[in-house]
Design a protein around this nucleic acid. Structure first.
Length: 469
RNA sequence: GGCGCUAUCGUCUAGAGGCCUAGGACACAGCCCUCUCAAGGCUGGAACACGGGUUCGAAUCCCGUUAGCGCUACCA
């Protein structure tokens, strides 16, 4: 088999949607699996909506996910001359024809037919202008679009994920391939480019299934070999509707901002619609080794943020704290928390096993570094209420005992346990108030580690201040 | 409306005719561990959309119904 060539071809009209990212990932996985070439092509033929900024966002999103391309990015807009040439060729071959109908005439015809309950069909026979009229407009140099004459035959293909899909030519309208301004319509541009770039496998969203018979007809008309098509299912929001920015985070960048690790995002996306078997956390090499188009699910999948966060937590706990240093530092800077002189690594390590996102890690680190960020939460309040006077009393006791302790976790723990034993206190009643004094909440790493990480001076200060309040 | 695609726990999925009294994961509930939480361990509830076939046997194959989704542009 010759070397496979796949492509990801987003249009830069918006952010990088997670569905698009997954399509890109599947292409990438396929290329890696079979030693193929991954081509990136930006489909910027919609001049109104395409922007360089969007292109940048898409490229950055792919890079963040670790999806690399071997060729490109190519810009479809640069291939207009080839698109035109292909359209002209089809015209010359008699497989396409000039359509002099104006947009207004077309709309009127559509309204008329659909208004009377019929199904609008564009057929040369039914809508073509009388020959004299065509001749007249041609002579007058009237503008025209080029329409492809869809052959009245069965068009079928073996989809790599769906199996055989077939279409009847008569169910497909003769569609425009070249606008009256000379620019190509999507279906022509895609086929023209995929042929030129020698794409062997078209792996894309299954919202393109109905474009496929049109494109196959074009491949045939152009005399080009037809690639293998693989249509991957859509990604839905929890409401069962297509995941959209309006209701939830739909852009790759949103998850980056949420503090999701690229490896976790990649793993999660890959397992949405594809499954290597029973395991949930799949190393990249394993993923590549096992990836097969035929194993992709046919059904659309709901994007479950909760599971993503769980998965991210798994990756977070496997990740050495050093890897988190840069992103956490960045977030601390954004939050405006001074961190110079602190052993950030130790704080991150103390906090990360309980966190699900980088953002969460950074917030917890911030509380440990900066006493002014301690805000008592609901459970903290409840504890204070439950303990009454004991809250401050125990805090003071702990503060006294800790005064002379050498500041390491083991010594702190020993001192605190000795205190509880000496005064017959429940261990929890001495530990929890400390936790509330230091963090505002009742949840954290073990108290002795918390104390160690906050540092003696600051920890004792928080204990004293809280006890006095 | 037409054409097409899809249909296993709430969600992601395993399942390619007997291995299925349907397995795993997230979420949920309970228990254990424990100063708290997380992690971890154990336990529990929870699904083959419906109806017909084919077959000795169907979650798996076929047909129909229903439902959801997609497309139906001189958008991509």
């Amino acid at each position: 088999m010759t070397q496979p060539r796949v492509r990801f071809a987003p249009s830069p009209t918006g952010y990088l949607h997670v569905g698009g990212a997954r399509t890109a990932l599947f292409n990438w996985l396929y290329a890696k699996r079979h030693g193929g070439v991954f081509v990136l092509r930006i489909e910027d033929t919609d001049k109104q909506r395409s922007t360089a900024a969007h292109t940048r966002v898409i490229l950055d999103g792919l890079s963040w996910l670790g999806i690399t391309w071997d060729e490109g990015p190519f810009f479809q807009g640069e291939y207009a001359p080839r698109h035109q040439a292909d359209a002209e060729r089809l015209l010359a071959l008699g497989l396409a024809y000039k359509d002099f109908l104006t947009t207004e005439e077309l709309e009127a015809a559509r309204a008329r037919i659909e208004g009377s309950g019929g199904t609008f069909r564009y057929e040369r026979k039914s809508l073509a202008l009388p020959e004299e009229e065509v001749a007249r407009r041609e002579a007058a140099n009237a503008s025209y679009a080029i329409r492809f004459e869809v052959p009245q035959e069965e068009i079928a293909w073996d989809d790599a994920v769906h199996g055989r899909i077939s279409w009847q030519g008569r169910d497909i309208d003769d569609f425009i391939i070249l606008r009256s301004d000379g620019s190509a319509i999507y279906n022509l541009a895609v086929v023209s480019d995929d042929i030129a770039m020698r794409i062997t496998h078209v792996i894309r969203g299954d919202d393109h299934i109905s474009n496929t018979p049109k494109q196959i007809a074009l491949y045939r008309a152009l005399g080009a070999p037809q690639p293998i098509f693989a249509h991957v299912p859509m990604i839905l929001g929890s409401d069962g509707k297509k995941l959209s920015k309006r209701r939830s985070a739909a852009a790759v960048g949103d998850y980056q901002d949420l503090g999701i690790l690229p490896a976790a995002m990649r793993n999660f996306l890959a397992l949405l619609g594809w499954s290597p078997g029973q395991e949930e956390i799949v190393p990249e090499q394993e993923m590549i080794a096992r990836f097969a188009l035929g194993d992709i699910q046919k059904k659309a999948a709901v994007f479950d943020t909760t599971k993503l966060e769980w998965m991210n937590g798994q990756f977070l706990s496997m990740l050495p704290a050093t890897e988190l240093l840069a992103p956490v530092t960045r977030q601390l800077d954004i939050l405006g928390v001074p961190h110079a002189g602190h052993d950030l690594l130790a704080v991150i390590a103390a906090v990360k096993t309980r966190a699900r996102t980088i953002t969460h890690v950074a917030e917890q680190v911030a509380v440990r570094l900066d006493g002014s960020r301690v805000v008592r939460d609901e459970k903290g309040l409840a504890l204070v209420a439950r303990l009454g006077d004991r809250f401050a009393v125990n805090l003071r006791l702990a503060g006294d005992v800790l005064q002379d302790v050498s500041w390491n976790a083991a010594a702190i723990e020993a001192a605190l346990k000795a205190l509880a034993e000496r005064d017959g206190l429940k261990l929890g009643d001495v530990m929890q108030p400390i936790r509330v004094a230091l963090t505002g909440g009742t949840v954290s790493e073990p108290v002795h580690e918390l104390l160690a990480v906050v540092g003696k001076e600051e920890a004792l200060r928080r204990l004293a201040v809280t006890a006095a309040a």
